[in-house]
Simulated assay, not measured.
Amino acid sequence: MRARPVLIYDGDCAFCTSSVRFAERRLRPRCEISPWQFADLDALGVTRERAEYEVLWVTPAGVVHGGVQAVARLLQDAGRGWYVPGVLLTLPPLRWIAHGVYRLVASHRERMPGGTPACALPTDRRSGAREPSGPVE
């Protein structure tokens, strides 16, 4: 079992990378942060397809939270003034609204500040793309 949670994000996406860098500076989370392209997804219990689809938060016990729930866990982990917004993101109806907003942003991340056209490309066509480390499920 790992000692700390792990945040997995798309390292080929400029918007995603910018968002993670913001979180590192402002939230100072107590977790490991890794682009999925360099993470041992099998050891984390995560498929490549899921890692390509959304940001992931993997607890030390191996529970995986995706999308806005991963963001909620990140905020809760940061503590201080971020804990309460993190908890609120787990509660209906805010959870449902936040999920819709997350999917909208994720679907258009190449148009977001810091995003690039590479964010919209299929993963195998992005710069630095590599083969998965095991069979794709």
Results as ranks from 00 to 15, higher is better:
residue 81 G to P: 03
residue 96 W to N: 10
residue 25 R to P: 04
residue 39 A to R: 03
residue 10 D to N: 07
residue 95 R to C: 10
residue 60 P to G: 10
residue 84 V to I: 14
residue 128 G to D: 12
residue 35 P to H: 04
residue 35 P to R: 07
residue 53 Y to D: 15
residue 125 R to L: 14
residue 43 A to F: 04
residue 113 P to D: 06
residue 117 P to E: 11
residue 46 V to H: 02
residue 45 G to I: 03
residue 101 V to Q: 04
residue 56 L to Y: 07
residue 85 P to S: 08
residue 8 I to R: 00
residue 78 A to Y: 04
residue 35 P to W: 02
residue 26 R to I: 09
residue 134 G to C: 02
residue 84 V to E: 04
residue 27 L to A: 08
residue 29 P to A: 01
residue 31 C to A: 15
residue 95 R to Y: 05
residue 62 G to A: 08
residue 59 T to S: 15
residue 101 V to T: 09
residue 106 A to Y: 03
residue 84 V to H: 03
residue 135 P to H: 11
residue 81 G to S: 08
residue 97 I to F: 14
residue 97 I to G: 04
residue 70 A to R: 05
residue 23 A to C: 13
residue 61 A to K: 12
residue 38 F to D: 14
residue 55 V to A: 14
residue 107 S to E: 10
residue 10 D to V: 02
residue 63 V to Y: 06
residue 101 V to I: 15
residue 75 L to N: 03
residue 88 L to G: 00
residue 7 L to D: 00
residue 129 A to V: 04
residue 14 A to K: 07
residue 47 T to E: 11
residue 78 A to G: 06
residue 8 I to A: 00
residue 62 G to Q: 10
residue 22 F to V: 13
residue 35 P to A: 04
residue 41 L to V: 09
residue 75 L to R: 05
residue 90 T to V: 00
residue 57 W to M: 05
residue 106 A to P: 02
residue 30 R to Y: 05
residue 20 V to D: 08
residue 121 L to E: 14
residue 90 T to M: 10
residue 117 P to R: 12
residue 82 W to D: 05
residue 116 T to R: 15
residue 79 G to N: 09
residue 132 P to C: 01
residue 52 E to G: 07
residue 21 R to N: 13
residue 101 V to R: 06
residue 10 D to K: 02
residue 45 G to W: 05
residue 1 M to L: 08
residue 76 Q to A: 06
residue 122 P to V: 12
residue 93 P to I: 06
residue 26 R to P: 00
residue 53 Y to N: 11
residue 104 L to K: 05
residue 49 E to F: 06
residue 56 L to H: 09
residue 5 P to V: 08
residue 46 V to Y: 01
residue 24 E to F: 01
residue 7 L to S: 01
residue 132 P to V: 07
residue 4 R to T: 12
residue 104 L to N: 00
residue 133 S to R: 14
residue 51 A to L: 09
residue 5 P to H: 04
residue 131 E to C: 05
residue 5 P to E: 02
residue 114 G to A: 11
residue 110 E to S: 14
residue 23 A to Q: 07
residue 100 G to V: 04
residue 123 T to R: 15
residue 9 Y to V: 03
residue 119 C to S: 15
residue 18 S to W: 13
residue 66 G to E: 10
